[in-house]
């Protein structure tokens, strides 16, 4: 559906995007993850034809963005970081203008616009001026704009920025639902969002792809250790001693003392050794009851930090 090959964008000496390649399949929701200034927006601007690339090709539905921009633009709905709304227009007028701009069939226009307003829940505000809407509603109007003309591909640059938590959940649900009919690229620096919505994640850092995989595989592949959080009733020093004695434990750290002599520990162990059973038996033998035990999986956040900081360490 979307093929990106060796995409590079230079600004003078700086490479904002450096030799990026990936493909997005039909009906997929791809997450685009990276710190600020990593090149997410630049890449999206190139895919949508807002700015041209310096090198490399972008193909959407088989059409090249530089050779056939019109065909590509017809198939893409784009929500930039700042919703491209005319603040002195009403919501309805604005969406009508966008349908005309995207040359939606005249007969279908009205029905399509009211469907979209229903979908993103701005129907009640259809006759209000956009400048009087809150940030969250403007964002929805921006999303509505991207949906006009039912494009096959949706490109959403930080779609949930500035929304309240309830709206964020709604928009995420909406994006997931849209994913059934549209191919979606979604950028974000909010990690739980990407893992909640996306089927595949591209982590981009300093203009280069740092990792590309499903959120699950990323959490599996990137951990070098597994972490446990355990609360044990017993004197701190002797409990730590017992834990250290277990085979496979790399590191123990008393975390919080919950009550007197009831302490929460963070234990790191080798990735392929499960220390939960030996830990249980060791504590039972020593007579220190385990109050609580849970494994801390590597979150996308940890991976993100690891991927993006690891490169810096190499550099310095």
């Amino acid at each position: 559906m979307i093929e990106i090959q060796n995409l590079t964008k230079n600004y003078g000496q700086i490479k904002a995007v450096n030799n990026i390649s990936f493909t997005v399949e039909k009906g997929e929701i791809l997450g685009f993850l990276g710190p600020n200034g990593a090149g997410k927006t630049t890449t999206m601007n190139i895919i949508t034809g807002y700015i041209p690339s310096s090198e490399g090709t972008v193909k959407v539905c088989g059409y090249d963005i530089l050779e056939n921009p019109k065909e590509v633009k017809k198939r893409i709905g784009y929500l930039p970081e700042q919703p491209p709304v005319y603040t002195d227009m009403t919501v309805k007028d604005y969406l009508e203008f966008v349908s005309e701009l995207k040359s939606v069939d005249k007969k279908k226009r009205r029905a399509q616009i009211s469907d979209i307003m229903e979908l993103v829940k701005i129907g009640d505000h259809r006759n209000r001026l956009i400048k009087n809407l809150s940030k969250g509603y403007r964002q929805r109007v921006g999303l509505a704009q991207a949906l006009v003309g039912s494009p096959e591909v949706l490109i959403l640059d930080e779609p949930t920025v500035g929304l309240d938590p309830k709206q964020i959940i709604e928009i995420r649900r909406l994006i997931k639902a849209l994913g059934r009919e549209h191919t979606i690229i979604l950028s974000s620096h909010i990690l739980p969002e990407v893992s909640a919505v996306c089927e595949r994640v591209v982590i981009i850092n300093k203009g280069e792809i740092a990792a590309i995989d499903t959120p699950e595989n990323l959490s599996k592949g990137f951990g070098t250790a597994s972490k446990l959080s355990v609360t044990i009733a017993g004197p701190k020093s002797s409990v730590t001693g017992y834990i250290r004695g277990i085979y496979g434990v790399k590191y123990v750290e008393p975390n919080i003392e919950k009550e007197k002599d009831v302490v929460n520990y963070i234990i790191e162990s080798d990735k392929d050794i499960d220390i939960r059973r030996p830990l249980f038996f060791a504590m039972a033998k020593a007579g220190y009851p385990i109050i609580e035990m849970k494994s801390l999986n590597m979150t996308l956040e940890d991976i993100f930090l690891q991927v993006t900081t690891r490169e810096e360490e190499v550099e310095h």
Partner: peptide, 14 residues
């Protein structure tokens, strides 16, 4: 200034 240029340029209008 308002960023609506993005909409105009990314729409299928030259």
């Amino acid at each position: 200034k308002n960023g609506t240029e993005v909409l105009l340029i990314t729409s299928p209008v030259s």
